[in-house]
């Protein structure tokens, strides 16, 4: 009897010790992960910060003799992002609405879902490869912003469809039922009731996806090209000119692609430019993240306060 009590005590103190050790180990892991995140971001900002803040870096073209910069790449990145969003947001909205509201419970729907899932798991280089043949050659667009934007759209659609779908499904069912019970169509219900209620989450999702699109490069190398563009901002409305910043049929080089190109074909001093560009890219992406959070908070506060 006495030995049993003794061994039970032993057991209790053992499992308590085990519990403490496990908690300790987990705490250390979490601490290290957070340290890693801080270290990565801080390192990049410090390493490339000076270059990024050098006068001219953000305003000079990369071919400039003195103080080469990244202004064309910056422009191309944002312009391509906007073209991508213009294409991908409506398609994703439509697809998400179909899947949430209309999708009949049959093989067509499950095939469509599988297609979107497949798209989400495809390596971006495969998307780029497909784009280099389909958009560039088959459709005859050539290496161009529009081909790049279409490749990015393929990359972006699964992400967007999922977030929009989630946002629509998170609107209470009762809202939807109430509108349908007044004899309204699913279309009217979605446009007038569900979308406004889901808007904060949708906007957050779009901005977050924009951050990912902004940093994507593999899908672009063979679709929009990797040669730094030469733009002429003095004559922005000659849409067929290869130097027109708005021409969607001209090649373009985004920040991310520019980094890749400089690392694969290094030249004198390119390391510093790489770090500077990486810093600018990182800051842009972090700003997108921040913007997504702020916009989401602002919109949902406005919705509930109204």
């Amino acid at each position: 009897m006495a030995s049993q009590v003794h061994s039970l005590d032993d057991h209790v103190s053992r499992i308590n010790r085990q519990d403490k050790v496990a908690t300790g180990v987990l705490t250390v892991i979490v601490g290290l992960v957070m340290l890693l995140v801080v270290a990565i971001i801080a390192y990049i900002l410090v390493r490339g910060g000076t270059r990024a803040l050098t006068p001219g870096f953000l305003t000079n073209p990369s071919a400039a003799e003195e103080a080469p910069g990244i202004v064309y790449q910056l422009w191309d990145s944002f312009y391509m992002l906007i073209v991508t969003l213009v294409i991908s947001v409506p398609i994703s909205l439509g697809a998400a609405i179909f899947l949430v509201e209309y999708a009949p419970d049959n093989w067509v729907t499950s095939a469509a879902k599988t297609a979107i899932e497949t798209l989400s798991s495809l390596p971006s280089i495969v998307v780029g490869m497909f784009g280099s043949l389909f958009f560039v050659v088959t459709l005859g667009w050539g290496i161009s912003i529009i081909a790049g934007a279409c490749a990015l759209t393929m990359f972006n659609i699964p992400i967007l469809v999922r977030t929009i779908q989630q946002a629509l499904e998170d609107v209470p069912r009762s809202q939807r039922d109430a509108a349908l019970a007044m004899g309204l169509t699913r279309w009217e219900t979605t446009i007038n009731v569900l979308l406004p209620a889901a808007m904060p989450a949708i906007v957050t999702g779009i901005v977050l996806s924009a951050g990912r699109v902004f940093g994507e490069a593999a899908a672009l190398i063979f679709t929009s090209g990797s040669a730094p563009a030469r733009l002429n901002f003095a004559n922005p409305f000659n849409f067929v000119s290869p130097t027109c910043p708005f021409n969607i049929f001209r090649p373009a080089c985004s920040l991310a692609v520019y980094i890749w190109r400089l690392t694969s074909e290094p030249t004198d001093g390119s390391v510093e430019i790489v770090w500077g560009t990486a810093t600018v890219l990182l800051v842009c992406v972090l700003l997108f993240n921040l913007l997504a959070r702020l916009l989401g908070k602002f919109l949902s506060r406005r919705l509930t306060a109204e």
Partner: peptide, 27 residues
């Protein structure tokens, strides 16, 4: 109106599916 809604959204899904199928076939 309901059919219009179904048509528009269905078209988006069909487009995505079509692109995916094209990609698979092409690769």
């Amino acid at each position: 109106l309901e059919n219009v809604g179904l048509g528009i959204t269905g078209l988006c899904v069909a487009l995505v599916a079509l692109v995916v199928v094209t990609l698979i076939v092409m690769v």
